[in-house]
């Protein structure tokens, strides 16, 4: 296995991570470090385990009955599976944006503050401020500021996805996981979200799974290539795309398979 990048202050580290659905192993002994306040892309062909890996970081895989995990994942040095870190707390610190936008059937306002509401925040001033800040952060404020009390289901696809991003940043997480956030969007909305990712990296560490290699090249600082549950290559995006060290990586990014 090739040598991968290491960082002095990684936000998330995975050590010897293996993952199983029942008896089939989908991740094999993954060692990865994610840099703080940068964008890391996970690429690879369908079924290579990149979404599974992403969902390990906020323990969304717990919801699957037959899933099991070996190895360690540390968030700022704390094992996320240890008793010291409650899963609720973990998910507050590690937000997630899904492939298919999933706004709740509530008003735009209520969607944004959902994370605060369930944490028990009911102070009107704080809520109002968070809504404005988050929507501005997600680049949606100017479009929806006059209809905050209307249903979120009336927004367009791209707006909905940005609303989901606003919802994720409203609880002020350290890491945002994005699971192919643009795959259901048109090119214009995609450009908008990509631009947004660029802005968000000032404040948040972002891990993005994408199918689209151009997108990975455009938005990310580092890229990891996964193939059949194995981490093949990991390095600064430019290096990985310009001079891949691995034959498989080269084949994949030049479109010979995948």
């Amino acid at each position: 296995m090739s040598k991968h990048s290491t960082f002095s202050d990684p936000v998330i580290e995975a050590d010897n991570l293996s993952f199983f659905y029942g008896s089939s192993q989908t991740l094999h002994d993954i060692n990865l470090q994610f840099p703080r306040k940068q964008v890391t892309a996970l690429i690879g062909p369908s079924g290579c385990g990149k979404s599974t890996l992403l969902r390990c970081f906020n323990r969304m895989n717990d919801l699957v009955d037959s899933a099991s995990m070996k190895g360690n994942i540390r968030l700022n040095g704390t094992d996320i599976n240890s008793s010291g870190l409650d899963v609720i707390e973990l998910r507050r610190r590690v937000g997630m944006v899904f492939q298919k936008s999933n706004p709740f059937p509530k008003s735009i306002y209520e969607n944004v503050i959902y994370g605060l509401r369930i944490a028990g925040v009911n102070n009107r001033a704080i809520l109002d401020e968070t809504v404005e800040k988050s929507l501005q952060g997600a680049g949606l404020w100017n479009e929806v500021k006059d209809r905050l009390q209307q249903s979120a289901l009336g927004l367009s696809g791209g707006q909905m996805q940005r609303l989901c991003i606003a919802r994720a940043i409203a609880v002020n997480p350290e890491v945002i996981l994005m699971d192919e956030p643009c795959s259901a969007l048109d090119p214009k909305s995609t450009a908008r979200v990509e631009e947004l990712i660029g802005d968000l990296r000032e404040q948040y560490s972002i891990i993005i799974v994408t199918h689209n290699m151009q997108q990975a090249a455009r938005v990310s600082d580092h890229t990891a290539f996964l193939y059949e549950g194995l981490l093949i290559e990991y390095g600064p995006t430019k290096e990985l795309f310009m001079k891949p060290k691995n034959k498989q990586t080269e084949d994949y990014i030049t479109g010979r398979f995948g």
Binding site: L63, M96, F104, R117
Partner: peptide, 27 residues
């Protein structure tokens, strides 16, 4: 109810019970 709605709520740090009361039962 689409699974994404459940995941979306859980991913924001809500418990299963909160998701049920605030999202699923109303829907």
């Amino acid at each position: 109810i689409p699974g994404g709605i459940r995941e979306g709520s859980l991913a924001l740090g809500s418990t299963k019970f909160q998701t049920l009361m605030r999202i699923l039962l109303p829907m």
